[in-house]
């Protein structure tokens, strides 16, 4: 622009022809060619890094209406089931296998990487690497139904030793306290185990989220409510109000004490 102003304002008789030719050759041909080549090479060198493979741990995540089914598949060791929360080791490239059994969802954790659609019948791949420990909020980024907006997942990045200890601890059933025995009985009596699994109990349902370490999660209903006894009770009592069109039926007939007992039991699963 400065050159344009100079050229139009200049009162001199115009540029020398050789100078003009040289200006066109260097400014119009050589300079853009060199700049574009440098930018292209820089971009191409970055591309293989973006598509690097994971370093061993694969986490299968299925987006379902309206929650996340999470299965850790360590290189050596049995798979670990969880839901609505993803834990990853800091500094390690973790591969995600993204699927969906119902409609199109999209796995998006903006702090860690771009969004990748979860398409029924396909397995999409994403590799994420957390540089710092912390909690990174993720969401479903493709409209998937009435509770699309109530479908969040935190990615919790843990230091590698902590993560390894956590993952190996996951293969053991959660500890059970005597004071929550009644809640457990109510949980099983009311048929919750038909849809939910709690490792080490008769609850082996696979329709809904795995509740084995429910007490470890910060939220319930995939980021819908805080994980507190009152809120768990509310979620069970008026599920369809809290989370419209969710598959789980509401249990308005359960007495409040029973709801709180079940909530106490679930909250103790750590």
């Amino acid at each position: 622009m400065s050159v344009a102003v100079y050229a139009t304002r200049s009162s001199s008789g115009g540029l020398d022809e050789r100078l003009a030719k040289r200006f066109i050759l260097w400014g119009g041909v050589a300079f853009p060619t060199v700049v574009l080549t440098a930018l292209l090479i820089y971009g191409l060198r970055l591309m293989p890094v973006l598509r690097a493979s994971g370093e061993g741990l694969t986490i299968a995540v299925a987006g379902e209406q309206f929650w996340w089914r999470v299965t850790y598949q360590p290189k050596d060791g049995p798979p670990v089931r969880s839901a609505n929360e993803v834990r990853v080791p800091v500094g390690e490239r973790v591969a995600f296998a993204l699927t969906s059994p119902d409609v199109i969802h999209s796995f998006w954790n903006p702090s860690l990487g771009g969004k990748v659609d979860m398409i029924p019948g396909r397995e999409n791949r994403l590799v994420l690497k957390a540089e710092k420990a912390g909690v990174y909020r993720g969401v479903c980024a493709e409209f998937c139904g009435a509770s699309h907006a109530l479908m969040a997942f935190p990615v919790i990045a843990m230091e590698k030793p902590d993560f390894d200890a956590w993952l190996s601890g996951q293969s053991r059933p959660a500890a059970e306290a005597a004071e929550t025995a009644q809640g457990k009985t109510l949980f099983l009596q009311n048929g919750c185990g038909a849809c939910h699994a709690v490792a080490g109990t008769e609850a082996r349902g696979e329709v809904g989220p795995d509740l084995t370490r429910f007490g470890e999660r910060a939220t319930i209903g995939a980021g819908t409510l805080p994980n507190e006894p009152e809120q768990i009770a509310r979620f069970i009592r008026e599920t369809d109000t809290v989370k419209p069109r969710v598959k789980m039926p509401a249990y308005p007939a359960l007495p409040r004490e029973d709801l709180l007992a079940i909530a106490g039991y679930l909250g103790s699963l750590k």
């Binding site: 041909v29 060619t33 574009l36 080549t37 292209l40 090479i41 191409l44 591309m47 293989p48 598509r51």
Partner: peptide, 22 residues
């Protein structure tokens, strides 16, 4: 010809930096 030389080189550059099918 000049434009085509640059075009041909730019088209071929990814084959130098990208070594697999990802």
């Amino acid at each position: 010809c000049g434009l085509s030389i640059i075009g041909v080189i730019f088209v071929a550059l990814p084959a130098i930096f990208i070594g697999d099918c990802r």
